[in-house]
Design a protein around this nucleic acid. Sequence first.
DNA 1: CTACGTGATGTCAGACCCTGTCATCGGCGT
DNA 2: ACGCCGATGACAGGGTCTGACATCACGTAG
Lengths: 188, 188
Amino acid sequence: MGRWEPNARGRLEEAALELFAEHGYDQTTVAQIADRAGLTERTFYRHFADKREVLFGGGTVLEEALAAAVREAPAEAAPYDVVAEALVRAASFLDEQRRDHAPRRQAVIEAHAELRERELGKMAAWVSTLADGLRERGVEPRLADLIAETGVAVFRTAFATWVTDTRAQDLRSLLREAFADLRAATAG
Amino acid sequence: MGRWEPNARGRLEEAALELFAEHGYDQTTVAQIADRAGLTERTFYRHFADKREVLFGGGTVLEEALAAAVREAPAEAAPYDVVAEALVRAASFLDEQRRDHAPRRQAVIEAHAELRERELGKMAAWVSTLADGLRERGVEPRLADLIAETGVAVFRTAFATWVTDTRAQDLRSLLREAFADLRAATAG
DNA sequence: CTACGTGATGTCAGACCCTGTCATCGGCGT
DNA sequence: ACGCCGATGACAGGGTCTGACATCACGTAG
């Protein structure tokens, strides 16, 4: 055991989520979050770049999973399928690891424009990751961007349903359906 | 003529763009912007909700154009084509009205994550507008979201090329090509 | 066993963002 | 002339975020 209580970062995340849910994002100050976690405001900023970021800590896991999925896809797979499959893998991860946590978190995010914007920024980073992966597979740069953007757009709609409808199917299935729907809509 | 110099809002926008380009977004304070425009910081906040918003003033024009385009589309048109055509119309507007202004503005935006996030937020508003329009045409809600998200994703890639490559074609053509490319990629 | 380095935290000061409130001033209608 | 109205100025203050320095327990070298 160290000098301090362990898992300061985790305590801050939990305290923040509770306070945001109780009093709202705007009405919660960083000092209050730090207080509830038994720390000071300054220490909060040593763990998170800004107040919003406390809700987006685990983002890198998904991003690395996407990069790996693109890298490991069979060489002969079409770019669109590579992206779709990578996102389906990410969806499976969320199904298994975040089924309970996600709706609670998402309710806070959707209630505030600032947080929605940050969420969009995180997904834009996925686009870059996916597009980079495609380019390394020899896909033409323009097309890589186009397919990555589209894939994440599809993911967003499936994700929206998943976190809104608690009784909805698993994200993996929703995502596969959405990809199929898009194929049908564009073919029309 | 009134008591004050006319077009305070326009002067603030111009001053901000200049200062952001010269010294960077972070290094520019709202007080400096107001100063250059011959106003005070408090007045800046009467014209813009926050510091970022000074770069996104003309956003409603496009949003209304999108809504109108969806409303006026022929009843028998497929949802995907309705969205594509609405975005092409918005692209034409940018080609004609913003060809010179856009790259200068975009250079500032791309240099700062905060501003990129705000831009994503604006485009997310387009998604809502388009999806609302489709729903009013009787498109199933889920599908409306999916198509609106995808359409704006395609727009983003064409827009990125347009503002980056000054020698690129007009946005309207780039967008049409991107929609065709996506159709080809998903058909594969 | 003592001394020193290390890493996470605390303390403090300060710049900047943004808001609420009240005062000011010129134009406009009566 | 009078008073209303709308844009602006002036001022105070809370919240966000950063830089600089101090503190304290633990590990390790000597």
